[in-house]
Nucleic acid binder design. Sequence first.
DNA 1: CTGAAAGCGCTAACAC
DNA 2: GTGTTAGCGCTTTCAG
Lengths: 333, 333
Amino acid sequence: MDEVAAEAKVSRATVSRVLSDSAGVQEETRRRVLGAINRLGYVPNLMAQSLATRSSPVVGLLLRNPRKPVYGLLHGEVQDRADEVGLELITVVPSSSPGVRNERRALHKLLGLRVGGLLIATGVSRTEDLAQFLGVVPVVAVGRPECHDEIHGISYDEPAHGRMIAEAVLAHGHRRVCVIAPAESVSVSESQRAEAMITTLAEAGARPERLPVVRSAPRDGCVEAVELVRRREVSCVCLPSDERALAFLAAAERAGLVVPHDVSVTGVDGITAGLDLVGLATIRLPVATVAEQAVRLMAEQVHGAGAPVEHHAHRGTFLPGRSLAAPPQHAEP
Amino acid sequence: MDEVAAEAKVSRATVSRVLSDSAGVQEETRRRVLGAINRLGYVPNLMAQSLATRSSPVVGLLLRNPRKPVYGLLHGEVQDRADEVGLELITVVPSSSPGVRNERRALHKLLGLRVGGLLIATGVSRTEDLAQFLGVVPVVAVGRPECHDEIHGISYDEPAHGRMIAEAVLAHGHRRVCVIAPAESVSVSESQRAEAMITTLAEAGARPERLPVVRSAPRDGCVEAVELVRRREVSCVCLPSDERALAFLAAAERAGLVVPHDVSVTGVDGITAGLDLVGLATIRLPVATVAEQAVRLMAEQVHGAGAPVEHHAHRGTFLPGRSLAAPPQHAEP
DNA sequence: CTGAAAGCGCTAACAC
DNA sequence: GTGTTAGCGCTTTCAG
């Protein structure tokens, strides 16, 4: 900055004024400074800036898993919306090696950077980890179901998604359906979806067959589900994510099962490209809506004062697909 | 930090020593400080730290488009590798609204943060924008074809991928094939793939039909390609990315064309989930290899001294698929 | 082994 | 309008 000041024959204070667009700088002077900045390729030190102002124009996004299409899309959407409202976004991803410490580490990285806001798109196991920073920096949870009373939360209405799937399955005449049900420790969203499916099916008098799963591998439970189909104990398999549904579809194909002739299949997500070709019946998550609202909320927090805590759960749309049809004859009562 | 010092009844200097693990702190004192840190939930201010040390433990990743599976996977891989070698990673994404200024803005955000290293997974149009910072901070280009002589570059061998596809297509007996060829301004990678396909096909005496495309919408050119197939002018359509291939597959289906009976189709990427179900013949990009090598190179740069500039292009593997078969009879000479 | 003091690059009152 | 000065939170000699 000193170099720029020297080059423009002004003091550092003036350079600072030009940088922050503060009024009261002569057009001529301003031009000289801008020239010097360009000539020297000077990039202001954000860290020094926020150290001096005790504030940061950047908000941090803690992103669960960029490899999954849903998170990829969310990342893109949040980025674009942030750009629109003038928020600088940086993203941090917890390492995917086992252990819950990773999320805390990632969170601390963001906190260490003294970001002006925190967008949390992760399961951060203990919500208390977040609560701790509520007073310090605005926090908005995005796309995660569970959330603290004092934390703004914009999420997907997973129970509704489970019900929607179950209702579609029932409408096609299925009565004996297998639901792959991951433990909450595997994925809160997937667990909520599966539980809602099971409840809805049971309430309608159908016989849901719960297949518990305790690991996050998408293929988990597929072999068992195929076996159930083979024994004609179920006419439909509902999986709590498209990733799992695709894995099951592959397993079914390998086992010589024809979809939907031998078995119907459903997923949830609706983001992955090429889903229309596969013809998977699923729910499309309202990612754009969630991202938009979360960023808007964050912008308000960062700029204005803290609004009262908001919680919203958005519902996706059902995507019909060839994979869901009427049950095979032999399965009829 | 003052509070921590007070709580532990030491001076800030000692706290600093404990934080940086520097030797020469009595075990007893150290324990007291650590205790105070935990009790107060203190997170050191990274910005102040790097301001004082004029160095940063974090390296920045400039990521083109998190919505695309290839970039999503790359993001995840880079993150994990970085974690392994002890590099803190933050990611910045250029806004996707039109205009090339976005990448520069994103780059400046990273530079402003005074990151200790720059991983560039983007097209940043003008390589000179990067060259400017070569002396200041280590730069490694990852997954982008073109690159400056003085910039480390780990990328995909796109021309080889184009050749591999062309050879597979030829081996199946196709002679008249349509190649969707995006302009370089749309995507350098895709353009390189397409050009290599066309060259290889032509050299083998086949008659490639180039279908230029100047927008990045994946559906671009699909209608025209379908028309070529309908008029039986080509027996195979080669697309420079899976995204485009999926779009074409959908267009073909809508037009009543059966793959591979009426037309063979190929893509490039091999990352998207469910590709095996669709049966698309494609090339799987060696994303993990590229990420690993790029991060290793960055770690060397950041820790040790600057090694001589390295350039590597990695070749993917061909994934056979139902979508590529022999040409229909009527297309035979 | 620990404390005091001088900055790191920048902003924000406050003078001129 | 522009320059001066005193920190922001931390590291790092240099004494003790």
